[in-house]
Structure formats: structure tokens, C-alpha cells
């Protein structure tokens, strides 16, 4: 959205897409999108369409990056050049995507049992085919599922979601237009088992009370996102079990 006047983002308590302040966009998760990958998933989160794929563990290369005590993680988050409704983007990593790759990798360093694979590397790819705000959180949610599907042991499956502020209203899960005109944006990733915060970034203007309220929304939404992640993973197996139940 080029410059222009700030649109009114909340009218009569409802957002432009009809959501309530604490409401998520619709989310759909599939497992096994990329056959060559060891684990993969595809997530549709509102208008976001994102693929996550995992390769490895395999021998870490070049050799000097190897850690003799544990596996290393390489993460590559990128946006396809056709992913935006606006201009054609540049393909490949840029400064923004490199930062997102780094913080995404750090999320998974908390939960992957890296000590099981000394000298190895685990590659995580997050590719945004269509972006509409909140892609890093959606990408982390999808990458969690792809990692679990790969069989790599993890102490938990993290989820991501963001909150922000428009005027004096705290809102959950900002889409692109809300993000462009919001007063604050705070993406979060959480380990649902421990409740610990694994990713936190913030940009804009918030009060400590806003953070309390936003984190409350995030955790409530997290219960639902966790449920979707688990269902996506179990579905294919349960379908087969069901078929042969006596």
C-alpha cells in the first residue's frame, strides 16, 4: 500500500476482515507437501501460503562448521518474488529474510535434541509463496510440523503468532494492511509444554499493560494452533488405522 491516508482499521469493534480483536485468521495445515524432503508441511494462514521443508540430519558441510558435540541447524526463510499483491520482489535472501532465518533457527535450537547427532546438520527451509502479514510466525508453526514429521526428536513443537496495536486496541494476528498501519507489532513463538518464549521481536509503541493483554491473546490462540499442528500430523496415520480397525 503506497503511502496515502491511514485507513480506519477497526470499525464498531470489528477489523476490516470482520475479525474480533483477539481472533485468528483461518488456518489449515497439511503434511508431506515436498516428497523429497525428510519432513515437510504446507500452511495456509489467512492469505499466507507457506511451505516448510526439512532435510537431514546429514553430515555438516563445510567441515569447519561441524560441532563435534551436537548437530547444527541451518535455516533459510525466503519470499517468492510473486508472493506479494504489489510489486515483483527480488528472489533469494535479503536483509529482512536473513534476520528472520536467524531468529527462526534460534527458536528450534531450544527444542531439537541436537546432542543426538554430533557433527550433523539439519536444514530447515521456509518458503513464503504468498505473503499477507505474520509470515515468520506462520513459518515457524509450519516448520515445527515439518520437523516432527521428519522424525527428528524434539522436546516440544513450538508455534508462532503475533499481536500488535491499532490506535488504543490490542489485536491478535495482524494481516498485511494492519501491519502496515499499526502502532506496534510483536511476533512471538512459544513452547506450549513449558510456556517459555522462544522468539520475541517488537516494533512500535506499547505499554506494559498492552504486552500483558497481547500475551494473554497469544497463549489462548496457541492452544488452538497446537491442536491444529497435532491433528495435521496424526491425521494420515489415524486414517489408515481407522480403515483396518476390527
Amino acid at each position: 500500500m503506497g503511502g496515502g491516508e491511514k485507513p480506519q482499521l477497526i470499525i464498531n469493534g470489528k477489523r476490516l476482515d470482520g475479525r474480533m480483536p483477539d481472533e485468528l485468521r483461518p488456518i489449515k495445515i497439511e503434511v508431506g507437501t515436498i516428497r523429497n524432503a525428510v519432513g515437510s508441511s504446507y500452511i495456509e494462514w489467512g492469505n499466507n501460503k507457506i511451505i516448510a521443508a526439512v532435510y537431514g540430519p546429514k553430515e555438516a558441510l563445510p567441515k569447519h562448521v561441524q560441532d563435534p558435540e551436537r548437530a547444527i541447524i541451518k535455516c533459510r526463510y525466503t519470499m517468492a518474488p510473486f508472493s506479494s499483491l504489489e510489486e515483483h520482489g527480488r528472489s533469494g535472501p535479503n536483509r529482512r529474510s536473513t534476520e528472520i532465518s536467524k531468529v527462526t533457527k534460534e527458536v528450534f535450537e531450544n527444542v531439537i535434541m541436537l546432542e543426538k547427532y554430533p557433527g550433523a546438520e539439519i536444514d530447515i527451509f521456509v518458503e513464503v509463496l504468498q505473503g499477507d502479514g505474520g509470515t515468520r510466525a506462520a513459518g515457524i508453526t509450519a516448520a515445527s510440523v515439518a520437523l516432527a514429521a521428519s522424525g527428528i526428536p524434539m522436546t516440544d513443537m513450538p508455534y508462532g503468532v503475533s499481536f500488535g496495536k491499532v490506535g488504543d486496541q490490542v489485536i491478535l494476528d495482524l494481516n498485511k494492511i494492519e501491519d502496515n498501519y499499526s502502532d506496534a507489532d510483536m511476533p512471538i513463538a512459544i513452547s506450549p509444554r513449558t510456556g517459555d518464549i522462544l522468539l520475541l521481536q517488537m516494533d512500535g509503541t506499547l505499554t506494559p499493560e498492552d504486552v500483558d493483554l497481547g500475551m494473554h491473546m497469544v497463549r489462548k490462540a496457541g492452544e488452538y494452533i497446537t491442536k491444529l499442528q497435532r491433528e495435521a500430523l496424526k491425521q494420515s496415520y489415524e486414517k489408515i488405522s481407522e480403515k483396518y480397525k476390527k
Partner: peptide, 22 residues
Amino acid sequence: TYSCILGSFDEQTLSLIPLEGL
């Protein structure tokens, strides 16, 4: 106690078998 893998858990025998993995 929590699972660390995608697996099949038998509540009687308390065994957890990986469904995927290395």
C-alpha cells in the same frame, strides 16, 4: 512424561515406537 517424537504409544506396555525418523 512427554513424547519427543511422532510415534505410536501403547498405554498398556508403555512403549513408544517412532513412526518416522532415523
